[in-house]
Nucleic acid binder design. Structure first.
Lengths: 190, 190, 190, 190
DNA sequence: TATGAATGAGCGTTCATTCAT
DNA sequence: TATGAATGAACGCTCATTCAT
């Protein structure tokens, strides 16, 4: 079967894309990516038919990594507050430890070429959060606010915290705690 | 600072740039901007030496507009909560009423080419907010949190509210109110 | 109005295209054409939006030149035979004297990208031939054969004669005469 | 001349090439040919060192098929007219029944990469026609015209008839007959 | 100053050919 | 021998910028 399409190489391209996009934005040339990945220019297109397809793949990859970071060891039995705190902590932690990934993810999320399929696939693993929040509303633990509001504010606050923490590592804990308190205070029933 | 001949034309270019960037992203061609502005391709470059300079100018322009919207009629005598609410309401209102501007502002803020000077100039008019918050901390009305945190979370929440409101105009008031409550609950001393 | 789009330059590009296509076929690079025309690569696209558009323009240009060569001084009053001979002679003469043009015209006519509009525009000036032949049929000077047949065989024979003549100039007259006799013998009523 | 292992595969490639070239022109990718032939991309190059070599081989193959179609059951004893008619009928018949082959043959004949050897090999089987015509000239059955002229006009007329017939099957007989009459009238001694 | 044609570096992508398997 | 991933030159085209008018 000749050299089989190697998963290593696919991964190398995705990794290189993240590095290059983080440094130069999504406008970076595919040739910069292929050379960062240590492959020929044409090879990139054996793995991703177009640049758009590559960017979509980067998005899915990052979302999947983030999902693993956030959703593993999810304490399904604990209180809503602790479950939300778990998610929050993991999210912020991932962003602080993976700054390139997080930066690129933000950029891609604002990008025009994301397909519906990618968006769907990207958000699928986070469905559990929605379920949790819905139940929390039903159980009167949390205010009856639109789902989108709760998720969007959580993302926005978490991303803010990540960025602040990256620039001022010493205060990372302060930011993280204050961010969560803001979120919880805005969401929880008194 | 060279003062070009026609301020009208300069303004026309900036306006056109906002419209075009909002629709096609910062990657839009300068020729699209000049034609939207009703001028020749080359003329754009008598007002802005490079595209990067134009984008920086757009940023400053938008920040200045936003500052006017936010800071005018600032109720310096009212309570901290009301002053903050004033800012919040103006900010969110500006974003909802000027969706193109707000979209472009977000894009430019994520862009790589913003100069330090632009960033400084852009945030200058908002110095007053910082002063206010500093006093509020001193007077124990507000928790002793880092300034950046308070400003960044306010921005993040406001932008989230704007975007949600644009997609769901009927809930705009709900979002605005819940957003402010979250911010205030996270900041105010109990 | 700055440098106006020059007709000279447009013509230079079309001429260069003919030369280059004749030498290397329609697959020749646009960069070869622009450099043969003495202009920058990008300039070609100010005059022709795409390569396909350029090839279509070449086709129309050549057809127009051919039409002028064939249809000028058309002896509308003479006998059918003499009128047909006039066309034949002009056609063959043009092909022999403009070998590059004729070669390229053949290639373009076999090409997939010719638009309907081009085909229509290209054949319009030759409408007069059709009229002539139709009248000749009506007047019983010529056999009642399908129009397409008469035109296609004339083209085929003329092109054959051109090519033979180019390779063997001394016999050009023989070929030309024999070719016409074949055509006339096949078409004329006995 | 290296004899590759599997003649089946060689033939499959040649057949596929004809189909693909007919549909997309000679610019078609070799990968399209190999996939149409049901083989791997690289395998094509064990049978034909380069694409040019493949096209040359296609030419020879088609010429050979055409020769078989035209020259078999050649009525060596009949009159010149009948012998010529036999050739004509077979030629036209082959073209009408093998439209892909005929289309590709025309394209390849206009192509720049045909080698002298191919041209020579391609025309070899038709030497018999030349002999026949030479004798016919000697025996005063046919005008003393250059060999090339007679062969080229026959080809040109036959190809014209094929193409017209393909587009208008009902008139195929008319075209075929009128084409031959034109040829014969142009060649035969009165 | 305003114009828009001219420029050419740079882009994403294709494809004939090579080569590790 | 057969495979198909790997290669990189080459392509058509775009666009920020320059410059003749």
């Amino acid at each position: 079967m000749a050299r089989p399409k190697s998963n290593d190489k696919r991964t190398a391209i995705l990794d290189a894309a993240v590095r290059v996009f983080a440094e130069r934005g999504l406008a970076a040339a595919t040739s910069a990516i292929s050379s960062a990945a240590g492959i020929a220019e044409g090879t990139l297109f054996t793995y991703f038919k177009t640049k758009d397809e590559l960017v979509n793949a980067v998005y899915r990859q990052l979302k999947a990594e983030l999902a693993i970071a956030m959703m593993s060891r999810f304490p399904a039995r604990k209180s809503v507050r602790l479950r939300l705190l778990h998610i929050w902590t993991r999210y912020v932690g991932w962003g602080v430890e993976n700054p390139l990934q997080q930066k690129v993810l933000r950029q891609v999320e604002m990008w025009h070429g994301l397909t519906k399929e990618s968006k769907k696939a990207g958000s699928a693993p986070f469905r559990e959060i929605e379920t949790m929040m819905r139940e929390a509303v039903r159980d009167r633990m949390v205010k009856n606010l639109p789902q989108v509001f709760m998720q969007a504010t959580m993302s926005a606050l978490a991303e803010t915290v990540m960025e602040l923490s990256r620039h001022d590592r010493k205060r990372a804990r302060v930011y993280e705690k204050a961010g969560f308190e803001m979120l919880w205070a805005g969401i929880a029933k008194k």
